[in-house]
Computed example of a mutant assay.
Amino acid sequence: MSLLEHLLEVRKRFVLVAVGLVLGAVLGWYAYDPLMELLQAPLKEASEARDIPVTLNFTGLTAALDTKIKVSLFLAVFLTCPWWLYQFWAFVTPGLTSKERRYAFGFVGAAVPLFLAGAFMAWLVLPHAVGILTGFVPDDTSNFNNAQEYLSFVMRLILAFGLSFVSPVILVALNFAGIVQGKSLLAGWRWAVLIAFTFAAIITPTPDALTMILVALPICLLFFGAVGIAIMHDRQVERRYADVA
């Protein structure tokens, strides 16, 4: 594909992803109230544990509306994750054979549960994080959190966990597209482990090492699994070329 064709393909995929997000946001708009109850649950738990007011605070007339729009878009990301993950696959693998294109089902089938698993792990970490952070609030005081700042914090946490769990599947997609070789990935395993632990240290909002290790280990295991799949795929490609030659 020429550079212009690549740019047109990028625009096409972005438009398709945007359409999916808009439709998902419409559904998210109607699911706003129960979702807000879930998002506020860690604050309520911290409030009960500390016996101090820990709640959201909406500042400004438009804050509640802005928050509802943001939460709707946030939910849209989850509702449409099979759609935008498929668009990524369709963009990076246009040169595959018809047989290999069928792997798109496997890619989406693996990426979606991994993304949701990462998001679920973030959800498990969130109450622990809120409990530790509110532990620094002095006694006999209140902790009023700006609604948009709190929701941005939660969204970044969940999306970062979800995408980190999908990253090994993305490496496999890049390998199938011929962009990266399995041996190259294996050669950089030390950097991959370092990046996984560094990412875990940055993204986990708690100072304890146990949470960081629990986040980093699954990412490392998924990376080595992706490397194994990439190496097996490279061997299949080499045998196919050898048979043709």
Rank of each mutant, 00 (worst) to 15 (best):
L133I: 14
G109I: 06
F120H: 08
F105K: 11
S167Q: 09
P138S: 01
N143M: 14
Y150C: 03
T198Y: 05
E149G: 11
Q148P: 00
L124H: 12
I195K: 06
N175A: 09
L186Y: 12
F197L: 10
V193E: 02
L186N: 10
V125N: 07
D139T: 14
A110V: 15
P168F: 02
V108T: 13
F107Y: 15
M155N: 11
V130K: 00
L133T: 13
I179M: 11
V154Q: 02
V125D: 04
R190P: 04
A187R: 12
D139S: 12
L116H: 06
I179N: 09
K183D: 09
F161C: 08
L171T: 09
I195F: 13
A196M: 05
A122N: 09
S142R: 15
G131N: 12
F105L: 13
V180T: 06
I179D: 12
A160Y: 00
K183M: 06
V112S: 03
L186W: 14
S152M: 05
A177Y: 11
A111F: 07
F136Q: 13
G118N: 08
N145H: 12
Q181L: 08
L114N: 05
I170L: 15
L124P: 07
V169I: 12
F107M: 09
A187E: 14
F153S: 04
L185H: 02
A117H: 08
V108N: 05
M121W: 15
L174Y: 13
F105I: 14
Q148C: 00
E149A: 15
G182P: 02
G162K: 01
F136C: 09
R156F: 14
V125T: 09
W189V: 14
M121N: 11
S142A: 15
A177G: 15
L194P: 00
F115Q: 01
I132S: 12
I195Y: 04
N175P: 03
A111E: 03
W191M: 10
I158S: 11
Y150M: 08
W191T: 13
A196D: 04
F165H: 07
M121A: 15
G188I: 00
F144N: 07
W191N: 11
V137Y: 08
N146G: 08
P138N: 05
D139Y: 14
Y150K: 06
N175S: 13
I158V: 14
G109V: 04
G188W: 05
A196G: 05
V172N: 00
F165S: 04
V180M: 07
L151T: 01
G162D: 07
A147Y: 01
V154S: 00
K183L: 05
T198G: 13
S142F: 15
F107L: 06
N145D: 09
Y103C: 01
A173T: 07
T134N: 05
L185P: 02
W189E: 10
L159T: 05
V137S: 11
L163N: 00
A111C: 06
L186G: 10
F144Y: 15
A129E: 11
A160F: 10
T198D: 01
